[in-house]
Design a protein around this nucleic acid. Structure first.
Lengths: 129, 129
DNA sequence: GCCATTACTTACATTTTTGTATGTATCATA
DNA sequence: TATGATACATACAAAAATGTAAGTAATGGC
């Protein structure tokens, strides 16, 4: 997300993991705010300021960085209107839209996982009395 | 993966993102080597040393850390045999096994994404002559 | 001329993740 | 008594991700 030292083992391992299409895919969507951005854009195309409002807690710097990466990776498209003040709209690309169902599956899995953990916790607290 | 400063904005945002079941799910599988470990265990249960051999480039420290987290999150199970030298086997849990099809979908998406990018590149290099 | 609006950029600090190197416990066997 | 095998643990260092604070450009309206 900033400068990267290409000679480091860390960076070498990142490249190594890019060979596998699975870990490659995770690298593309792995930034902290990326999936939230994609989900927002799945609903409808949105302006920078709208994304900022809808994604609570994100800073302008982070929003910009993640948008830039998503754009560079071809998951979203950026459209600038020649206006002042500026108007910039972001949309999902075709390949970007194709991860939405995967996100839905992940969401469902996360929900199951969480409820299972909650179940175990309540079981434990139940047993401890 | 190490000590976490609970008061930092960074940590607060992590917790905030845990509220969404999608980003929650990504947090559980997001470590650099976690999906490779899960895929290895999907094939069959394996010992620590086997995982180390099969996952090229991973260090013992990283393997241990990621295994610990996966275990703490309930995605894998750890079984210790009372032997010397020690024998420890890892297996997927039920909920851990449930992300395998999602990984397959991600893998397929990654493959499509990569071939599309490659296609664009060759198009560009073609046009530039 | 001054201000408001929008979508950023930049320099810097902090936090987190990842990697390096070395050490540990156990016990059968040589 | 020393050695080898296995699955780690620990202190430390480096790199990367994330966050903070402030500034920028363009232009219409006051």
């Amino acid at each position: 997300m900033a400068k990267i030292k290409e000679s480091s083992t860390n960076s070498i391992n990142r490249k190594f993991l890019t060979d596998c299409n699975l870990t490659y895919a995770v690298q593309l969507m792995g930034g902290r705010w990326k999936l939230l951005i994609l989900m927002q854009l799945n609903t409808e195309r949105q302006r920078y300021g709208e994304l900022k409002k809808k994604i609570a807690n994100i800073t302008e710097r982070m929003l910009t960085l993640q948008l830039r990466e998503l754009e560079a990776d071809g998951l979203i498209a950026r459209r600038v209107y020649a206006q002042v003040p500026p108007r910039v709209e972001y949309t999902l690309t075709d390949i970007g839209r194709e991860i939405v169902p995967i996100c839905d599956a992940l969401h469902a899995w996360g929900t199951r996982h969480r409820s299972q953990v909650a179940g175990e916790v309540s079981t434990l607290s139940h047993e401890s009395f």
